[in-house]
Design a protein around this nucleic acid. Structure first.
Lengths: 162, 162
DNA sequence: CCCATATGGTCTCATATTGCAACCAAATAG
DNA sequence: CTATTTGGTTGCAATATGAGACCATATGGG
């Protein structure tokens, strides 16, 4: 039973993970960002089982993170394309990538480096910043409860929080 | 078989997901960032099965994203705490949260708002920026292959790319 | 100090998900 | 026009999850 759905949760993180939280989803999106379009591209790049790939792609299409479009080259096969919704997951992908570069890098270094296309330089770390653009310390980041959401009481013994 | 390990992949995203890619991991980390410390906190907040929570917490501890420490209040029970490694996942969490706020928000709004502790204001979107702090367009973000990694050839029919 | 309850697990079972391999129809290549 | 590729689907075995029973230790109230 992998299935305990997050979709009824009010938390945006849980709701997002409902869309991209399965094992392969974010890697599929990563490949799409790197130019993969066809079923075979994802399959070969990931080494994922075909039926699983079918499921994940269908989920992403249902979640409007990707769309099936007629092939650009006139082929009768369809292609998978990121929507704007999907492309806006870039900060998540970049953050995951940069965390991995720093903390769990492969001995040969990362396979892919995220860059500023203009300069070709490695991108600075995606990080919380103020409006001014100034980087914040993590200790400066807070989390406030929405007034419409039940308050958190870690000590209590009452109902579930979510 | 949920298990096809990503750990041998060279890609940093895959390597990161190996640590935090399971269904509950990122929600556990979110709760820890919001002050959860004890087993019961996570259990009540998430409504996760106890055996699954045990597994996830053990994985996080093994991955040195959390540590078990003696309780701060003198209790004989231990507490779970984020390491620096774990705290540095904040950009990922924030990015997920903000994406959810924008694209799949709950009708009552998000349960939690990520803020600048100083001002109390909602944090600007975590987003790729140049060294200067200037926000980039997503189209300006590139991905370059490491020279040590095999090149990508989406059209080819050769071995797996990873 | 004693007893009731809370806490933090572990174990078993039913079910859901994944991976693998076989198979297939339509598309494409030569 | 035939062989191969593509994009699936289906069935089966292995594995992970959720639910609940169960248990030892810790804590709280009197």
């Amino acid at each position: 039973m992998k299935t305990k759905s997050f979709s009824n949760m009010q938390c945006s993180i849980a709701r997002t993970l409902e869309h991209v939280g399965s094992w392969w989803s974010l890697l599929i999106i990563r490949d799409a960002m790197m130019g993969a379009r066809r079923f075979k591209h994802f399959q070969k790049s990931l080494g994922i089982a075909k039926n699983t790939l079918t499921s994940r792609l269908n989920e992403l299409v249902e979640g409007r993170i990707m769309v099936r479009v007629p092939a650009a080259d006139g082929s009768k096969y369809e292609e998978y394309q990121l929507t704007e919704r999907g492309r806006e997951l870039a900060p998540v992908i970049i953050a995951l990538s940069q965390w991995g570069d720093k903390w769990v890098a492969h001995e040969d270094g990362p396979s892919t480096i995220i860059t500023d296309k203009d300069s070709g330089e490695r991108l600075p770390r995606v990080w919380p910043r103020r409006e001014s653009g100034e980087r914040m310390a993590l200790s400066e980041v807070g989390m406030r409860r929405n007034t419409k959401a039940p308050p958190i009481d870690w000590t209590g013994k009452e109902e579930k929080i979510k």
